[in-house]
Nucleic acid binder design. Structure first.
Ligand SMILES: [Mn+2]
Ligand SMILES: [Mn+2]
Ligand SMILES: [Zn+2]
Ligand SMILES: [Zn+2]
Lengths: 141, 141
DNA sequence: CGTGTTATTGCAAAAAGTTGCAATAAGGAG
DNA sequence: CTCCTTATTGCAACTTTTTGCAATAACACG
């Protein structure tokens, strides 16, 4: 069950609490590995923790994202999907077929530095989704 | 009334139609200049066109975006806002205070080419929102 | 271990966004 | 100008997401 790292101390040190709900959701994100919509998280986590509710899932996902334990990703339709926070990366997604590939953060490092020095902003998020047409869809469409 | 360029032929050539609803919404986007949420578009466009409904606003905004007349922007909370399509640009938004600044597309041009040649994808969207902390919020937080 | 503080949850209701479908009307053809 | 095809809209129902609030339960402390 400690398969998911021990996030509890992390949270407690900031004045937050670890709860069965948060544990279950972290567990689901941790094991899935990929981006999950709130509905998918709710479905899976409900099996682990009976009585879990949708509002809690939405609030928890937002909470985990704010605290760096989960990462929200824009799906392109105006909705978010979440994944457990791991290494920095970005995505390239096909507008046509939805196919998706990962983009190394190193490719954006230079740009990030440029933006920071040019704007004075400190860039916090490292999980951008770029949209385009995949090789396949460029031909047949 | 022709203040908004004549989009009609553009649409008709693709088999679509120009309607009072689309006109009103284009008009609103054109004159506002900034990003508007669907609710804001509905509110403003309703005044110009009586009887306009929310489903039509949602559908029309999506339609305009698909046809390149409007651009959707991620607001960070998973919701979209729209603006009339003009020059390519991106945004840098403060996670804390919401303050936003524009980013020239030229800054991303190199990255875009890199991504395209590395992935084979053809990048279509040029309206990314980056998130961070503005200079003010870096100090007083 | 109890006890107290208060972060967190579930519930119910509201708000926002989506969908199916029949009625409407844009606009090409004659 | 009238007719016809069918893209588009409004309506109503539905699903998803958000919010307020009272009840619950983490967990720090003694
Ligand atoms: Mn990701
Ligand atoms: Mn913009
Ligand atoms: Zn594709
Ligand atoms: Zn700020």
């Amino acid at each position: 069950m400690t398969c998911s790292a021990d996030y509890a101390p992390e949270l407690r040190s900031r004045g937050y609490r670890m709860t069965p709900q948060r544990l279950a959701i972290l567990h689901v994100l941790h094991h899935s590995g990929k981006h999950l919509t709130p509905a998918q998280v709710y479905q899976k986590a409900s099996r682990e923790l009976d009585g879990l509710t949708e509002p809690t899932v939405y609030r928890t996902l937002e909470f985990l994202a704010e605290n760096g334990l989960a990462r929200p990703a824009h799906m392109g339709n105006g909705h978010l999907a979440y994944e457990i926070a791991r290494h920095k990366h970005h995505h390239l997604k096909c507008r046509n077929c939805g196919n998706e590939m990962e983009v190394q953060h190193s490719l954006l490092e230079k740009l990030y530095r440029q933006l920071e020095s040019a704007s004075g902003y400190q860039l916090t998020d490292s999980h951008v989704t770029f949209f385009g047409l995949c090789p396949d869809c460029q031909r047949g469409e």
